[in-house]
């Protein structure tokens, strides 16, 4: 509509593979060719693919540890505050700071804090929920949740050019799709 536009860059090029091993081999080749802004899409977690992409391991375990520590500290402080400061009850001279009785709730809330951190941390780091994604424009991509393996080299990679990247991918598999943004 309106004035002619410059041809827009696609989101990237998507190559389809029938075997997980072929995908991993392709990722190794793409990495060796210098591509970095790429991602693999598989129907199940495929061993070795993440490493082949050359990404750093996730910091989710640290986040989970932090969540657990926060949960435990909040719980213990709440128990201490309620039993010692806010509402001290003297029962036959027993200590107000009866820490063994505080352990179970501290433990439960530690687990709760860590689980929340693991779950919501995983979603946040993954950028989910993410209802629209350019990849969903490729009809064949539906098979990524069934039995096909995909490699997407994104247009924002400095080495990306429509023709060269397509040639590179077509040397690996016959099925290459352009992903509209």
């Amino acid at each position: 509509m309106g004035a002619p536009q410059k041809p827009k860059l696609p989101y990237g090029l998507l190559a389809e593979f029938e075997q997980g091993e072929a995908l991993i081999a392709a990722v190794h080749k793409a990495y060796a060719a210098g591509y970095r802004q790429m991602n693999g899409y598989t129907p199940f977690p495929l061993d070795g693919l993440f490493e082949a992409l050359g990404r750093r391991p996730t910091r989710l375990p640290l986040l989970t540890l932090a969540g657990g520590i926060v949960g435990g500290c909040v719980a213990y402080f709440m128990l201490y505050y309620a039993s010692v400061i806010s509402y001290p009850i003297n029962v036959g001279g027993r200590p107000l700071h009866s820490w063994p009785a505080f352990i179970p709730i501290t433990f439960e809330l530690t687990v709760l804090g860590a689980s929340f951190a693991a779950f919501f941390g995983m979603l946040a780091l993954n950028g989910l929920p993410h209802p629209y994604h350019p990849l969903f424009n490729v009809p064949a991509f539906k098979l990524a949740s069934r039995d096909r393996f995909f490699l997407c080299i994104q247009a924002r990679d400095p080495l990306f050019t429509r023709d060269h990247t397509r040639q590179f991918l077509e040397a690996l598999t016959p099925k290459v799709y352009e992903v509209q943004p």
Partner: peptide, 15 residues
């Protein structure tokens, strides 16, 4: 919006 991305799977399996 799950896409089965390798990066997502990695965090997912860890979580």
């Amino acid at each position: 919006g799950w896409r089965g991305s390798a990066v997502h799977w990695h965090r997912y399996a860890t979580a």
